[in-house]
Design a protein around this nucleic acid. Structure first.
Lengths: 135, 135
DNA sequence: TTAACTGTATTAATATATTTAGTACAGTTA
DNA sequence: TAACTGTACTAAATATATTAATACAGTTAA
């Protein structure tokens, strides 16, 4: 399904959360699509099922997936009823990132270009994972 | 100088780096201004000097401050000669955050409003720390 | 019903990362 | 010289992340 960096200082379960979020956001995983079971995914990635479970639990708490005992975990079809807390968090984080970007010399034009880029790739449903690891 | 959340899962030195970055970016700390010495700040915050040192080392590596043995640590007046790696990192992170924001229902208009907000507060030199703890 | 799958929970052991503590050395300043 | 600065290092303590093993309950299909 994807790769992890076991040597990274970033915890595995956080990598999992980020990666799965991206796949959901970019429509690679469709609404109601079934995710691999904790045991299967653990075997595929050669890590412990508990670590997968921790990631799934976090994704469920953030409203990205829902889990049904005995059936599996699925991509959420509606956003969680109350995501205002999450929205606030993302906005705060964005403000910090934008301030840092401007400080580093990135122009407003570049920032707006980033937005349109992301907007297009998301609506097209691309898997634009510019973060790295293509092999 | 500021507060830390010792109960947070986020390492203290990372909180320090983030907080000091914000102060520098928002011009609360001016160019060439002297930061508190590692020992003094450690005492003020009731944490170990080594933790401060680790944060300062990180800030120096990222080009935000410079340190002179025997004199102290100071806010950098010029950005580091090569911050392209940092710029790339910030851009990647921004793309992820923007994708998440759009997914959560934040509109492009809101994103652009965020940019102008940040841009104005930075150029005005406000300490717009909307993240919290005003007392 | 049974067998094989699912999520979930719990406890213990292990590994890794963070923080503290203590000490030392070198440069600066008055 | 005395008191400040940054920096480096080792060791111990603490916190966090990961693994391992096991158990239980719901689902599905033979």
């Amino acid at each position: 399904m994807f790769e992890l960096d076991l040597r990274s200082r970033k915890p595995i379960y956080e990598q999992l959360v980020d990666r799965l979020k991206q796949l959901i956001i970019n429509n690679v995983l469709e609404k109601d699509e079934k995710l691999p079971s904790v045991r299967v995914l653990a075997q595929q990635l050669s890590i412990n099922p508990n670590t997968i479970q921790k990631a799934y639990r976090e994704l469920e708490a953030q409203g990205y997936i829902y889990s049904v005992k005995g059936k599996g975990s699925f991509v959420n079809h509606i956003m969680m009823t109350d995501n205002s807390a999450e929205i606030k968090k993302v906005k705060e984080q964005l403000k910090k990132q934008i301030a840092e970007a401007l400080f580093l010399g990135i122009t407003i034009e570049e920032l707006e270009k980033l937005i349109t880029e992301v907007e297009q790739s998301v609506t097209r449903g691309d898997e634009d994972d510019s973060s790295s690891e293509r092999r």
